[in-house]
């Protein structure tokens, strides 16, 4: 047996606990293999618990671990880093809880905040520099950790209550679908629930469109006067929330 064949066979044994150990191991090898089999699943589940801490709290140990082992069974890791193993777990959760959309949305929020935690660093625009900006040409550049999540439930309120050790509200649908923006300020990840109007402006701004063109697009939808007011409001909020890295 070549080394490659042995290693391929060993991985098959880890991925399929029902597979017979065969003849590659010395006597009592099955007991040793059991240690590796247990460690494989346990480590990946621990990784998911670390990345999806609020989801774990929302589901409780039993339901979270059942979901995690279900995910592990169908998703052998490929990346060199365990840090990426959480990719796709929210989709697994959505499949397991189709009638409880808040579960997958809490998962997606956990994951977005985790990505923001060790995402790329960026400087934040000093509002004092605004006076020198040519607004006809200005393009907003956002911090690279900015992410946008669609939400239909009060997952943000649930997440915040769990994180703060407060009374956790019951899950409920939002009156209208909304969005959550996630980003990092300094070393601290943040999120905020936003309305569809801000999302539209943010999507335009993050597309690389100039701020002047963004105002024109808004004016086409809600009129010039309202567009100027809204664009100014959003710009002020984005600056205050330290989401803008530079205005070029």
């Amino acid at each position: 047996m070549t080394l490659a064949e042995l290693q391929r066979g060993f991985l098959d044994l880890l991925l399929d606990p029902s597979r017979d150990p065969g003849t590659a191991f010395d006597a009592d090898g099955a007991a040793g293999l059991a240690v590796y089999r247990n460690a494989y699943g346990a480590q990946l589940v621990a990784c998911l618990k670390d990345s999806y801490e609020r989801l774990w709290a929302w589901l409780g140990d039993e339901r979270f671990e059942a979901a995690a082992y279900h995910h592990v069974a169908g998703h052998p890791p490929a990346s060199w880093t365990l840090g990426e193993y959480g990719i796709g777990f929210a989709e697994t959760i959505a499949g397991l809880y189709p009638d409880d959309p808040e579960v997958a949305e809490i998962a997606a929020l956990d994951w977005a905040l985790r990505r923001a935690f060790d995402g790329p660093d960026a400087s934040v625009l000093d509002p004092a520099s605004l006076v020198a900006i040519d607004w006809d040409e200005a393009v907003l550049r956002f911090v690279p950790t900015l992410d946008l999540l669609p939400v239909h439930t009060n997952c943000g309120a649930i997440w915040t209550a769990i994180a703060g050790g407060e009374t956790v509200p019951a899950a409920e649908h939002l009156p209208q679908p909304g969005w959550i923006r996630v980003w990092r300020v300094g070393l601290q990840p943040h999120f905020a629930t936003i309305e569809t109007e801000e999302l539209a402006a943010l999507q335009l701004a993050t597309s690389g469109m100039s701020f002047a063109r963004l105002c024109d697009r808004l004016a086409g939808e809600i009129g010039v006067e309202a567009a100027v007011e809204k664009a100014g409001q959003y710009l002020a909020v984005w600056l205050q929330d330290q989401m803008i890295a530079e205005i070029a």
Binding site: A4, R8, L11, Q43, L44, P77, A78, S79, W80, L82
Partner: peptide, 9 residues
């Protein structure tokens, strides 16, 4: 790891 499976053990 071998090929595209990484056990992380």
């Amino acid at each position: 790891r071998l090929e595209h499976v990484n056990s992380h053990d």
